[in-house]
Write a protein that binds this DNA or RNA. Structure first.
Lengths: 309, 309
DNA sequence: CAAGCTTATAGAATATATCTATATTAGAGC
DNA sequence: GCTCTAATATAGATATATTCTATAAGCTTG
């Protein structure tokens, strides 16, 4: 049994294909097949059921591969020990970010980060919470930046900051005249919402969970907060925005922002990793950069009341 | 970097010798040397300082080897998953036992154990507590059977049973007339003790810690409880025995046993393993066998007041 | 049942691990 | 400080493993 064989087995599990796994491991498919066979022979059990398409791990294969992932993690940690000793922050960091955080946070973070740590390659992708969780579990992502708590016991959450929600109200809305709102003021039928799948949609709905709908005239669900803003600007109604999205607002736009009275609804944004997690130093560095690019007030680490996701 | 290379590095750390490590790994010394060199080259750091005799790991070598031990543990766990699936309890179990437990417990355990699990090879050695702790940490032992708590945070203790201490009193001692004793009755100058290094010696001394010595006429420190018994039988005085040592006593000997009034002084006997521990199923089986060969009353898992070791 | 995948097998080329023999180096004893 | 001894390193040969290319065999799916 070799580390390489375990890497191959894990790759087949991850990609559910010998051909694709071989490609990702930079070897030919027969090489990978042979090594998996040798591993299976060594262990005395079949790890994959090739008669299904796509290949699936056998019952015991699932257990062995889970354990193999732990072993490989320990092996990456050896490399980290070396890098750390050399005082270098190097490597690749694959980050998954939810779309309601990404555009307002990352552009402010990556510049400083890449300047400070030129030897780190960042790979950033926007995914839904569900997708990020999946990919963290199988190691396709090193960390996620998303709203928590997730209640996933194989993942580890480090809360980084707390972001309030605000409402964005068109001039034609009755709420425009109010200075500060309570969640009771919201009219669910006036509200522009994000698509299903965005955790922020659920949070916004839970803000208004006590309100009943009288039926919408128009159901427009969009994938981007920028669209929500434009809908209010051009088509009346209101929407709920995360605080960070206000950063580049014009004076005209700020006019339409209405804050909630305390307790303001808010979300907890965390860096989430696999529990036996690696790349600690790079991720520490990322956390520091995020904290530097976020208003001080949001860093408050005391457990606020946050909305479930 | 291969698993084999890491095994070699760990072996060199364990045995502090390339020659001996090679022998234990069943390869020649040049083979092992070459592989260690390749590993060092791959990692870009020297793991061992060969200019010292015996060889010592470098500062970073210590860290890398510690991590390598974790990786190897994960690799043993893969084998365990396979064995477990096959429903077999197989392998080797290296047990370290303290001398004040070994002769009264193990003979009753090993018979049944070996019959039930014929594919397990048991290797049992008597060592002091200190020695067992050391060997558990570097993996030379799989588990220890000793008095706890140890307060060692890299080790894991599973309390198995609680053993009272009794006194064994010669007919000429004034205590012989008493039916039950309190720890206050003990005369430290009459007491036969075990050698330094036996944890039970410390426990016995702590039973009498409030008593002052007037100076002994004879200081005879022995390594075995059997000797303590014979000293009382043939040379007067008293001694303290663990409860299990009474099991094969003659009627004549039982005459000399005096129990302590409640709360009886007692010790906690645990199976101790490394924290990232392996061979779970074999050790579970061992625990079951031990519990089967010990009087029910001693199994009480409620936290008794036990003596420090 | 054939087309288009995916995985397995065979044989050659390459790389790696191991061995034996021997050189070098470090430490112990005089 | 110099020898002797024990330990580690190096060299070259051999056996073993890994990988590749080419091709066969097995599943899916229309």
């Amino acid at each position: 049994m070799t580390i390489v064989q375990l890497e191959y087995a894990v790759a087949v599990d991850t990609y559910r294909s010998f051909v694709l796994a071989a490609e990702k491991c930079f070897v030919t498919q027969p090489t990978l097949s042979m090594q998996i066979q040798k591993l299976e022979e060594h262990l005395g059990v079949k790890l994959f059921d090739r008669s299904r398409q796509p290949v699936v791990p056998t019952e015991i294969g699932i257990e062995v591969i889970e354990q193999a992932r732990k072993l490989l993690n320990e092996s990456y940690k050896i490399k980290e020990i070396i890098d750390e000793r050399k005082g270098e922050i190097v490597g690749e960091l694959k980050i998954g970010v939810i779309p309601t955080v990404a555009p307002y946070l990352l552009p402010r973070v990556i510049g400083g980060f890449m300047e400070k740590y030129p030897k780190v390659t960042l790979t950033i992708s926007e995914f839904t919470t569900e997708n990020i969780i999946q990919q963290l579990k199988i190691g396709l992502l090193d960390c996620g930046i998303l709203a928590t708590p997730l209640d996933e016991n194989t993942l580890f959450e480090r809360p980084v900051f707390y972001e309030n929600f605000v409402s964005y109200v068109s001039k034609t809305s009755p709420l425009f005249k109010k200075k500060a709102l309570t969640t009771n003021d919201l009219d669910i039928d006036e509200l522009w919402l994000l698509n299903e799948g965005h955790c922020m949609r659920n949070q916004v709905l839970s803000i208004c969970k006590h309100k009943k709908s009288n039926g919408h005239q128009l159901n427009y669900n969009t994938g981007s907060i920028e669209t929500l803003i434009k809908m209010v600007d051009l088509n009346n109604g209101i929407t709920i925005l995360p605080e960070l999205s206000l950063q580049d607002f014009s004076v005209k736009q700020m006019d339409k922002v209405r804050y909630f009275k305390s307790p303001e609804p808010s979300r907890e944004i965390s860096i989430v990793t696999n529990k036996n997690f690696i790349k600690k130093r790079i991720i520490d560095a990322l956390e520091t950069e995020i904290l530097n690019s976020v208003p001080k007030r949001m860093k408050s680490k005391k457990k606020k009341e946050v909305l479930d996701i």
